[in-house]
Simulated assay, not measured.
Amino acid sequence: MNGVLSCLFWLAIGVVLAFITLPLAVVVAASLSPSSTVTFLPWDWTLEWFGALLSDRWLQPFLLSFRIATVVAAISGVLGILAAYAIVYEKIPGSALIMAGLLSPLSVPQIVKGVAIVLFLSIIGLQGILGTPALIAAHVVLALPFVTRMAATSLTNFDGNLDRAAQSLGATKRQRLQHIVLPMIKPGVLSGVTFAFIISFNNIPLSVFLVRPGDTTLPIAVINYLEYSLDPVMAAVNVASMIFILTVIFLFEKIGGFSTQLHGGSK
């Protein structure tokens, strides 16, 4: 009986992994197609379609998405740390209500948030900031709950005895924060910042309402391209984006231990 359950377990894992990886394998194969139509000829694959990614059509949207995602990750990281510190470390009055408010954007569909932001800016007469400023603000609203929650989780798991020991040795609050608290919660903060970067870089529902002509992010450029064509260049763009995101995750993991936060530990 145990053997049957074990086989079913591994079969289920295999099915899930196949469901996740096979579409990615198809996209990779399509990006190597030897002709302008999407074909699967592994004996005649080529990398020529990746050369098109260096054109302004794709390079400019990528650079804009990268700049926006970097700013969003930085702002969300700072605000998320401050919010988690006030709620968990300082235990300010009404902390549960404040945390609920910070997490509330997760309960609203992104399309609804996009429409609401556009209407709000129109009502208060700030239509002029539509574009990059509005995108950054909207993406911060979307990403902040992830950073706050992960930083708060790290602070909750933080061993308070370390802080009390440093205090008994004469360390000031600033010294304790700088040398004990922040290094201990670094995995949680960096994992939240990583999520913020990825969410901003790949965002479509919010961005589609806030971009301006000539000021287009990479995901919106992909959607616009798909309206008229489906060719290996499109597959190459998606493969390059996937490699870029995996590289970002790898770098953050090497810097601060991304996976330790997922396992509930600290590094």
Rank of each mutant, 00 (worst) to 15 (best):
G80W: 06
A86F: 02
A84G: 12
Q110P: 02
P93I: 06
G160E: 10
P183C: 08
Q178I: 10
P183H: 08
V88D: 01
M184V: 14
L190N: 10
R149N: 13
P133R: 15
S122I: 10
L103I: 12
V189G: 00
H179M: 09
A86H: 09
I87T: 13
V189P: 00
V78S: 01
G188N: 03
V71P: 03
A86R: 04
A166M: 09
H139W: 07
V189Y: 00
V112M: 11
I129M: 10
V88K: 00
L82N: 04
H139I: 02
M150I: 00
V72F: 04
I123V: 06
V115M: 05
G114E: 07
T156W: 00
H139Y: 12
F120G: 14
L119W: 10
A84V: 04
R174V: 08
L79A: 11
Q167E: 07
A84R: 00
L103F: 07
K113Q: 09
S168R: 07
I81T: 09
A74R: 00
A73V: 01
A100P: 08
A84N: 02
K186Y: 08
M99F: 13
G94M: 14
A137E: 05
V189K: 00
M150N: 11
S104V: 05
A152F: 10
Q178C: 09
G101H: 15
A74S: 06
A166P: 00
S76I: 01
G128D: 11
T132S: 07
A152I: 07
Q127H: 09
Q178L: 13
A165V: 13
V112N: 04
A171K: 13
F158A: 06
N161F: 08
V141K: 03
L190H: 12
L177I: 08
V78N: 01
V115L: 14
S95K: 15
V108A: 11
Q110R: 06
I117P: 00
A138G: 11
F146P: 00
G128L: 13
L126V: 05
L177S: 10
I75R: 06
P105S: 15
K91N: 12
L97N: 14
N157C: 01
I98K: 09
L79C: 14
T172P: 14
I124W: 06
A151F: 02
H139E: 12
G94K: 05
A137D: 02
A86L: 13
S154E: 02
P105K: 08
L177A: 10
L103E: 02
V71G: 05
S104W: 06
